[in-house]
Simulated assay, not measured.
Amino acid sequence: MKAKSMKWVKTAALFGAVLVLCYGIFYFGDYILNGSFVDWFQDNYVWTHTEPQDTSGLTMTISEINWPKFKMLILELFCLGALLSAALAAGAARFYGKKMSTRTISGAGRMIHSFMEHDIDADMVFPTEYAEIAVQMTQIKTKMERNARIMKEEEARKNDMITYLAHDLKTPLTSIIGYLSLLDEARDMPALQREKYTTIVFEKSLLLERLIQEFFDITRYNLNQIILEKETLDLSYMLVQMADEFYPILQKWKNSIDLDVGEGITVYGDTVKLARVFQNILKNAAAYSYPESVIRVKAEKDDKEVRVTIENAGKTIPKEKLPVLFDKFYRADEARQGNTGGAGLGLAIAKEIVVLHGGSITADSKNEKTTFLVSLPQI
C-alpha cells in the first residue's frame, strides 16, 4: 500500500514539474525579455492593413491573425511537442525499466541464493510470477545434488578400492619376502625345490606389479584428460593383433579367442586409445570367463557405423548391475576372488574413449553369456 502511494506521489510531482517548466518558459519570454515573444508573434503571424471609412474619409488600421501561417505554427509546435513527449516517455520508460530490471535481478538473486543454500521447496521462496525460474532452479538444484551424490559415492568407492589394494599388496609382498628368505637361508636347497620357489616368487612379483599399476590407474584417471589424436586405422588388423597378444593370458585357463572379422574394416580414431578400449574389454572377458571357454570377437560394418561385439561365457551379471558396469571404481565384491578384479577403471575408461569418438558401448548378460557391443561412426 505504501509503495502504491509513493508511486502516485511521484507521478503527481512529475506533472507538476512539467507545468512549472511550461509556465517558466512563458514568463521568461514574455516578462523577462520585455514582451519579445509578443513582438515576434505579431511580426510573423499577424496581418496589419488599413481600410478607409465610408463616411469620414479616414483610414482604420486593422490587425488580424494570419491563419494559414498560424496553423502551420500550431502543426509544427504539435509535432515538436509530440516528439519531445515521446522522447521524454521513452527516457522515463527506459529509466524505469532499468530500475525495475535491476530490482528484479537483485530480488531474483536473493531468492536463488536462499533457495540454493537451504533445504526448502521452491514455492516457499519464489512467488507466482517467478514460477518459470522456480522450475528451472529446482531442476538445476536436483541435478547438482545428484552430481554431488554421484561424486561422493565415487569417492567412497575409490577409497574402498585403495583400501582393498593396500591390503592385497601385503599378500604377494609377504610371500615374496618369505620365499626369498628361504632361498637365502637354505643355500644347499635341492635344485628342483629352488626352481619351484623361484617360480612362485616370480608370479607373486607379477601380481605385485599389477596391483601397483592399479594404484597408478586410480591417480592418473583423475589427473589426465583424454586427448584424441585421430587417423584412419585398420580395425581388422588391430583386433587380429590383439587376439595374438592375449594368447599367453588365455592359456592359463585354456581359453581361446574366436575371431569373426572381415578385412578392410577401418575407422577414423585414435589408434592407441581404441586399442586400450578393446584391451580393457578383453581383459574383463578373460578375467570372468569359465575355464576352457571361447571368447568370441565379431566386427561388422554398414554405411553408418562399425560394430564390434565381444562375448564370453561366464557367470551371468545381474540385470540391476549392468547399468553401473561402466561407473568409475565399480567392481562387484565377488570379482575379487581369484585376483580377477582390477581397480574398476577399465570399463569406465573404455566408455569415455568410445564416447569421445562419437560412439557408444553397452553390455548385456543372460544365460551365462556376457556381450559387450562397441559402436563407432563409419568414416
Rank of each mutant, 00 (worst) to 15 (best):
M1S: 07
K4E: 08
K10P: 02
K10F: 06
K10H: 08
A12R: 02
C22A: 14
C22D: 09
G24E: 11
I25W: 10
F28E: 11
F28D: 06
D30N: 14
N34P: 02
V38C: 08
V38Q: 15
D39E: 13
W40T: 03
N44A: 13
N44T: 11
T48W: 06
P52M: 13
D54R: 14
S56D: 04
G57Q: 03
G57P: 00
M60C: 13
T61R: 09
E64M: 09
P68V: 00
L75A: 15
E76W: 07
E76F: 12
L80Y: 09
L80R: 08
G81I: 04
G81W: 01
L83G: 04
S85C: 13
A93T: 15
F95N: 06
M100C: 07
S101R: 09
S101L: 12
S101A: 11
S101C: 05
T102N: 12
T102R: 13
T104G: 01
S106E: 10
G107E: 02
M111R: 15
H113Y: 15
S114P: 05
S114D: 13
H118C: 08
F126A: 03
Y130R: 01
Y130E: 04
A131L: 03
E132N: 14
I133Y: 05
M137F: 08
Q139Y: 08
I140Q: 14
K141E: 04
M144C: 11
E145S: 05
N147Y: 08
A148T: 07
E154C: 05
K158V: 03
N159Q: 12
I162L: 05
Y164A: 12
Y164Q: 08
K170P: 06
T171M: 05
T171F: 10
S181E: 10
L182C: 11
A186V: 14
E195I: 07
Y197V: 06
T199N: 12
K204G: 02
L207Y: 08
E214C: 11
N222V: 14
T232P: 07
L233C: 10
M242C: 06
P248Y: 00
L250E: 03
L250A: 01
K252N: 13
N255D: 07
D260G: 01
G264L: 00
I265D: 03
I265F: 06
Y268W: 02
G269I: 09
G269F: 02
T271K: 13
T271G: 10
V272S: 13
Q279R: 14
N284H: 01
N284Q: 06
S289C: 01
Y290V: 03
P291A: 04
V297E: 07
K301I: 03
D302K: 05
D303A: 05
D303F: 01
T309M: 05
I310F: 07
E311M: 10
E320N: 03
D327F: 08
Y330F: 14
D333N: 10
G338H: 04
G338Y: 09
N339R: 13
G341A: 02
G342R: 01
L347Y: 00
I349T: 15
I349F: 12
L356A: 13
H357R: 06
H357I: 05
S360Y: 06
I361G: 01
I361V: 10
D364I: 04
K366L: 09
T371Q: 12
F372N: 00
L376P: 00
P377M: 05
